[in-house]
Design a protein around this nucleic acid. Structure first.
Lengths: 248, 248
DNA sequence: AGGGGGGGTTGATGCAGGTCAAGGTGCCTT
DNA sequence: AAGGCACCTTGACCTGCATCAACCCCCCCT
């Protein structure tokens, strides 16, 4: 039996196996350009390295590491964060399955942030040099990456607005709404989920203290907008939450 | 006399003429990839449209406009800003000569922010479709744009950290230091300059009120770090200012 | 069973920066 | 020259969130 044959077999035999190709990955509608031809997907497949799982708390890369690749999250959640000169930490984003991390390393060829698994995670590594090469012959792929980066920019700008203009309630509401929407995109429940990040991380991301985050959760629970049980969240009134997030 | 000859003549005759090509633009070391060949520069030249000056207060594009082009600032300063649903405004960036605006429009093919001239400005329009086409055959150009976008991401993330972790003093100090550094890059004075943006814009960008910005300026003046005369700024102690910006 | 540590909640108090109000200065218009 | 307007500054007061402190719960370690 040749190695390729073994591959195929193992794929069939175990539901928990790594995805063997982008073509049959349940997330490909999120992380690949919509209009890619089957044979182009194969080419892409060839450059992508499916790495082994990342344990909770372990780093995918650290601030200052040489930049080689960007990563598509396949399972789990990551947080990206920077450490300021005086040792404080700033969480700059959370990354869910189907999303791409590591693009901040392109500009200086060095990662500008660290990425850490909030729970056991798996990622696909996409060597950037290969991606560049492939982009030159696949216009949709080039465009897709421009778009992904541009999306990261607009999302960061939304966070900037949130941090500079919104109250604690608005910030927390906005985060919950965002998590809910991203769950929906992956065909998961938009109203019931488990927050993989701690209150500390949430506070850090939103520019609030743990205590404030906790108080906001309590308040929203009292208002019957949310049911909160530790990390388990149930959204009872999504409309109200969205209105809150927009500053009602 | 043929038209080409006229071009050359007019270029010589008037110092205020528009740059006729990227090749002789004094900003090209900032806005072009370092390693571009002369003939590649020519190709780039061909797709770039040098538009007429933009009057103070006029828009380069508005939030919601269809996205066609990115723009290199040639002279003057622009601000980019978004309007939230409830009508508040958030300034997301200031753009100086040599810098590129408009990349947030790529992801959705619609501008996610508006760009407005803070003083009379001039820009080079770079049609994005042509840029994409050219990128496919010019690897350095493709890389350059990936890098520009990545830089925008890391800069936004620095602003996020600033907004979520820093005091009013730190924020204002950081902005002044940033303007100073960007002036230096253009071989202008790092210690004496005119702020083209109003206190309102500064406050808005930094997530502070006008009053607070004004008070911080007064305080820094009292501390002999800055001399402030309306929009004219003189940095008296750049070291102290940098230490302030980093939260000393 | 006991102890220790990480994470979460809640209450009491303080302060940085927001809000409100008044007044100044420079520039444009007539 | 006078009025109007945009922009900036300064002072007095108020408030939303940080800070400090206590305590709970859960899990792991010994």
């Amino acid at each position: 039996m040749n190695t390729q044959q073994q591959h195929l077999d193992s794929k069939k035999s175990c539901a928990h196996d790594f995805q063997v190709s982008c073509g049959n990955c349940r997330l490909n509608s999120i992380c690949l350009p919509f209009s890619l031809e089957a044979r182009d997907v194969d080419e892409l497949d060839r450059i992508i390295q499916r790495s082994k799982p990342l344990q909770k708390g372990h780093h995918l890369y650290r601030e200052g590491d040489g930049f080689q690749s960007v990563y598509a999250v396949r399972a789990g959640t990551l947080k990206a964060y920077q450490t300021t000169d005086d040792g404080r930490e700033q969480v700059t984003g959370f990354y869910f399955p189907g999303e791409i991390v590591g693009m901040d390393g392109i500009s200086k060829n060095v990662h500008a942030s660290s990425a850490k698994a909030l729970e056991t995670a798996a990622v696909c590594e996409i060597p950037f040099a290969s991606l560049e090469r492939l982009s030159a012959t696949m216009p949709q792929l080039q465009r897709h990456f421009f778009q992904l980066m541009s999306r990261e920019i607009t999302e960061d700008q939304q966070l900037i607005t949130l941090l500079s203009k919104s109250s604690a309630d608005e910030r927390v509401a906005a985060l919950i709404v965002s998590v809910s929407a991203r769950n929906a995109r992956r065909k998961l429940s938009a109203t019931q989920f488990r927050l993989s990040m701690s209150r500390v991380d949430i506070g850090n991301y939103l520019g609030l203290t743990v205590e404030t985050v906790s108080r906001v959760f309590s308040r929203m629970q009292k208002m019957d907008v949310l049911r909160v049980d530790n990390k388990e969240i149930e959204i009872l009134d999504l409309d109200a939450l969205q209105r809150l997030a927009e500053g009602a």
